[in-house]
Every structure is written in C-alpha cells, then in structure tokens.
Design a protein around this nucleic acid. Structure first.
Lengths: 221, 221, 221, 221
DNA sequence: AATGAATGAGCGTTCATTCAT
DNA sequence: TATGAATGAACGCTCATTCAT
C-alpha cells in the first residue's frame, strides 16, 4: 500500500454526510494530517490542530466529541483516500500481467518517496502497535491494497495455492513498505531509489514467475 | 538490524560512582525500554519511567539531566546491545556463503517476531522522521547491520560493483524490516512467518546469485 | 514616581470577550500585585496567583500565555494606574509654582508611606536590574513622573538649561524614592516622616530657587 | 551607606572562625555574591551556588545547614565588609568639616556607580521588605553608615538637636541611596552622575549649614 | 455554528533537603 | 571533608475536556 499517488483528502471525506458543517470538518482533518506529517504524532494536540485549522480550541469539540474520535476520522479519511485508486492501475487494458505488475511496483515505490507517505505510514505502524482500532484499520487498508497483487500473481503463476499466492503478495508488499524507512522522502537512500526499483522489479517478477508450490512447503516455525 | 537476538540491555560503566548508582542508571533504561515496547513513545514520560523504575521523579534528573538525554542514552544502549552479535553469525566457520546468508535471513526474521523488535522498531522509524538525532543513530544502526549482508553478497556474487552490492544489501534488509509490520509479534501474518521465511530465503539467495550488474543500470528516477 | 495616591488597578478593556473574562483578567492582576506587595517577587508564582485569584492554575494560561506576559501586563497596569494623576496635582489653579512644588513633594512622600508603594518599588528596582523589559518600563514610568517636576522647576528658576533642569528633577525624585527604604510603611523612620517632609520641602525648594547654572559646571567624572 | 569603596569579601569574613574549612566557606559566599549581583535573588539557588563555587550540591550542606543560613552568612559578610571603612574617610586630618562632608558625599556616590553596589542594594531593600532578619541587618548597616554624617553635621551646625541631626543625616543618606536606581551601574543617568554629584554637594552642604531647628518643627503627619 | 471561559491532570524541570558513604 | 544518591514538593506550562453563551 501507500503505493499509489494519493488524491486530496477531501475526495474520500465523508461519504455519507455528517451532522456537522462540511468545510470546518475537512479543514480540521487537513490541519491534523499536516501536523502529523510535518511534526509527528506527538504534535497532534487539539490546540495545535485548532490553530492550524484557524479555529478556536473549543470549536473542535463541536466537530469531534473527543480526540480519539478525531484521530479515527482522520485515519478513516486517509485510508479511504487511498482506496479506489488501486483497480485503475491494475486494469490497464492490453498490457501483460507482468507489465502491470512491474508498473504497480514502480508506482508503489514512487509513492513511497512522497513526503506524505514517508511520514504517515511509520506513524501508522507505531500507532497500530498500541491501539487495536488503528491496527484493524491498518490491516484493512493493506488487505485492500494487496488484492491487485494477488490478481496479478494468479495470472502469472497459476500453480500456486491461494494461501501461497497471498503470502507471496504479502512478501512483495511488505518488502516495499520496508523501503519507506530507508529510501523515502529525505532518507539517505532516496537517491538510490531508481536502483532499488530496478532490483525490486527484477526480483519480484522473477520470484512470482519461478516460485514453485513446494518451495514454500516444509517451512516450520 | 533488528535481526539478531539481543542480549540484556546493559550499559557501559560510568567513571566513578558507587555501585548503587550504576544500578539506578540501568534500571531507568530498562524501565524506559519496557514502557516504549509495551505502550509506545507517548508513554515515555518521566513520571511513568520513574514509577516503572521504582524511583522518585526527581531522581531521574540525577541520572539524566534532561529527557532528551535519557532517550539518547536509551538508544545508545539498545544500539550497542545489537552490536557484537553480527560478526558471530556471519563468521560461522566451514559454512558456505549461501548457507550463511540463509542463516542470517532466518535469524533476522526470527528476531522480527519478538515483542521487543516488533514494538521497538516502528517507534524508532516514526521518531526518526521528526528527530535528526534519532535519525542519525538509526542510520548508524542499520549501516552496521548491513555489513554482514554486504560481505556475504560479495562472496556469492563477485560481479557486482560496490554500490550495487550495497543497494542489494539494503533491498534485502529493508524487505525484512517491512515484514515486522505484518508478521511480527501478535501480527495477523505471524502464523505465516515460516512461509515468509521460505520465500525470503529463496528470493534473496536467488537474487544475490543471479543479479547482473546491467540489471541495475538504466534505472532513472 | 510612586508619589501619587494611586487608584484601583484597572485595566484597559480587551476587545471582545464576555463580561466574565474581563473580571478574571483584573482579578488575576490584583492577586498578583497583592502577592508581590505582601510576599515579594519570590511569591509571584502562577500557583499562588491562581489561588489568590480564586482560580485554577490552568486558567491563568487562558488569560496570559506565559508568566512573562502576566508580569508585563501587571507592570503596564500599575504604571497606567499612576498616570493621569500627575497633571491634576501640578495644575492646581491659582497656586504659585513654589506652592505646587511643595505640594507635589508632600504628596509624593505621603504616598511613599503606603504599603503598596513601600513594597512595590523596591521589588521593581531589583527586578529592573536583571530584566531589560522591566528596566525599560520602570524608566518610562519615572520619566513620566518627572515631567511635573520639570515644569515646576522651569517656572521657578528660569536660568537653568534644560539638561540642568532635568538633572535637578532627577535629583529631587531620586532623593524621595530613597526615603521609601527608610521611612516607608513599617520602616524605622516612618514616625519621623513629617520631619523628613519638612526637610525635603525646605531643601528642594531652596535648591530649585538658588541653584545657578555654574554650580553644575566643572563637574567631571 | 554603600558609599564606600568596598574591600574584598574575604577581609571581613569569619571574624571568629567556624567549625568548617575556611577556603570552601569563602568560595561559596563569593560564588553566591557573584550570582546575586549578576543574576538577582532568583538565581541564588543552592545548585547554582554550588556550580559557581566548583562544588557538589551535597557539599553545601556541609558548610551551611540550610539555605537561609547561607544567605544570612552572606549578608553578614557583605555588611561586615562595608564596616570599618567609614571612619577612615571622615577622620582625614586637617580638612574642614565641610570638606570632609563633601568628600564623603562624593565617595558615596562614586561607590553607587559600581556594579556590586548598584546590584546588591536594591536586592537587599527588596529582601528586607519580606524578611525581618534581613531588615534588621540592613537597618544596622545603615545606622553605622550614618554615624559619620552625624558627626560632620554636628560639627557644621551646632544648633540642631540630636534627633534633628539624625533626621538630617538620614535625609542625606536616603537621597544618595535613591540615586543608585537611576544613576548607578549601567543606568540611564549614569553619564550625568558628575552633575548629580555637584548638585548633591551643593544641596547637602547648604542644607546642613542653613537648616534651623524651627524649620523642622510644626511638621505633623 | 462557533466561541469564551474554566477545569484538573499531567508534562519536563528545578528546588531545598537528607543521609549513607 | 566532601560526595553520590535519592526524595518530595513546587515550578511554568500544556493537555484534553466541559459547558454556558
């Protein structure tokens, strides 16, 4: 995940419509995301959010009845903003499955170098370790993101069982997430990202193509 | 990094001081690490650390003149605790380079499933995004951890240039770090870790063996 | 300064805000002044101010975003409270300049025996020695207070140059300030204050009347 | 007072001899005075004193059993250091009483421009307002300082009763103390100090010479 | 729809003090 | 003599929250 150029937060905001005013709502979430990305989770205080949103502290309570509420809505909005962009990429007509896999790898790693992705996801991972709700939403997000990989793997290698295919998709997805930490925005290996992309494409495509079901058997903990 | 079973968190002796003082020092760092692992960076408050260390709040100041100081010492202690374990593993006498590579991969992924590693590293990554000092220490830590991979890659594949070898080592290291988030301690894919290990060994060894220098050329951003 | 009976400490209305807010604002400043007068600068802690104002500690932050801010506002309020009273005294119609000078001297020394003046000004002098902002406000306060003396001196003795007139005003003003320490509220020489007033009137009037420009020449450091 | 060039603190230190080591004792008091002069009473903390004295915090307790003790000893030392210097000045052989009075005025005002005097005395005045012990020591100090003035006044003007002479001495002394605040070290009127000295000499000598007993009668509060 | 006002808890830090060594 | 170790209270400040307006 985090591998798709992400539209504005507003796109996916409030699918239904809340009881509260729309513009203030979005303003607050945008301010919160901005703080999270720029200064980390410790900067996510209601005061700073209110200030960044050009609002009074008391007014936040009007839109969100608690801070936990605000953060949940923020995560929902961000996660929703990532969804929907996946299928577009995979279903490019006329391209071979391997081409589409390479394309998906490239796009994901590209997105990993953006400031938002580099900064947001480590915060998400850390939060997920100590908050069951966040963990659940994160899992959901990545589950969705892997659907595309699953489909492509199934097309390229028809011998793998579904759980093997899914493990392979997870391996590929996790590998790319790991690169955020080292080659993301303003990271030391950022200049080598093109080389890392080349390695990734080569490695993952070869892996998907050549992996045999029996390679994954006999694995015990 | 995060791939080696780590000894207890001990600290270089400070010059002078009674035996009691050294105890307090380590007690505090142990308490801090424990809090970080169990409840995240937001739980790293001096009051909670003092309580966990069975101490008065004011006493912390005697050992660490500021919170930043304490955290620096904590990181130093953790990082130091990971060092030293590296070379032992790589320099297993008599084993082939590929065997040793597989062994290193396995050990790293094993360690990624421990509570400490699963919980500590995401916090580290998030902190590193907003604290230059932490970023620097983290980079240093991983640089050291990759030395072993670099050596093994050089033995297995003699055609790669040094920057290519290093990029490959980073790719492998980053991939495994990424799996912490999905298959670490209490994570949904934890039961599939053996399968992921098998995929990892297969994929990384094959990659190291087969990657050609020209595979990494022509890579543009 | 410190020579005029001072009205209650009131504060310029802040724009907006409920009636309640203005009250809290003044309540805090009154409490702070009271503490300063009764227990000195070391008692000027936010907790004690809050308690004296019948407020929660956190509420102070609502009115003053820092302690420095509170102290600045306090000084501004006190200084403002002293202004306005000056011209009334000097411009008593029909009285001779010498009578008005004597009256100003008497009023100043009277005020110097009040608890507020006796306690506040030494604190101000001490603070001004180590805080540039306070020093500036103090200088401003005394500059304003000397205007009246300057005018009267100019009327009584037309031979003095302006810088000589100003130095003479400062001499008189400083002399009276010095008496705060010895003959102020609850001070050992308080009972002799009438005698000191008589000496002051006699001395200062004679000095203003008889001082020649050449008396102040030839003075070298 | 504060009008005599003051010898080193050490001169008057420990007339008897304490149970504790001499050098550490003096070192601490010197450090404390230095802090008081440079940063005010709020900087007089045991930690800072210990640091400035090149000592351990715990060691202060060895020399002074409490902070109050330390401050009392500090004031005693400073006050003692001012004593003894007075008579030397007054008893210059062969000079007329008026000359000696002028000389005493000049010396006092000179000393008022030193950093130590400008900084120390306002702190003393403020402390004296809220600490009976300090008030008592301060009163004692100034009582001693006025003895010289009293003697000179008695020589110049033989008509005054003793209480009148003493009130006059206090008036002169207080006037000069007041100038510390305005024309002391780094104060705005410091450059005009020569002019203020000229005014002072002229005014005080004339006052002492011409003041009649009946000028001070009829003064009621 | 939004704000002004206030609260109580907790933050990192510094304080004077104590006491065994 | 002097220090290392520790305590408990208080410091200025910021926190999430509440609620009348």
């Amino acid at each position: 995940m985090s591998g798709i150029i992400v539209p504005d937060l507003t796109v996916a905001l409030r699918p239904g419509g809340y009881a509260r005013g729309q513009e203030g709502f979005e303003q607050i979430l945008r301010a919160a995301l901005s703080l999270l990305v720029d200064h980390g989770a410790s900067a996510l205080t209601l005061r700073r959010i209110a200030a960044a949103a050009g609002m009074n502290l008391g007014s936040l309570n009007y839109y969100f009845k608690s801070k936990k509420d605000l953060i949940r809505e923020l995560l929902n909005a961000i996660i929703s903003s990532y969804e929907g962009a996946y299928h577009q990429i995979v279903h490019v007509p006329g391209a071979s499955a391997e081409d589409r896999l390479e394309s998906l790898i490239t796009l994901t790693l590209e997105d990993n170098t953006t400031k938002k992705t580099t900064r947001f996801f480590p915060e998400l991972w850390a939060m997920a370790n100590h908050d069951p709700f966040i963990h659940e939403r994160m899992t959901e997000l990545y589950d969705r993101a892997r659907v595309s990989f699953n489909e492509l793997i199934g097309e390229i290698n028809t011998d793998l069982a579904s759980d093997q295919r899914e493990a392979l998709a997870l391996f590929i997805s996790a590998s790319m997430e790991g690169m955020i930490v080292f080659a993301g925005y303003e990271k030391p290996w950022r200049p080598q990202m093109p080389m890392l992309q080349a390695i990734s494409r080569k490695s993952f495509v070869q892996l998907v193509r050549t992996l045999r079901p029996e390679d994954m058997l006999g694995a015990t903990d």
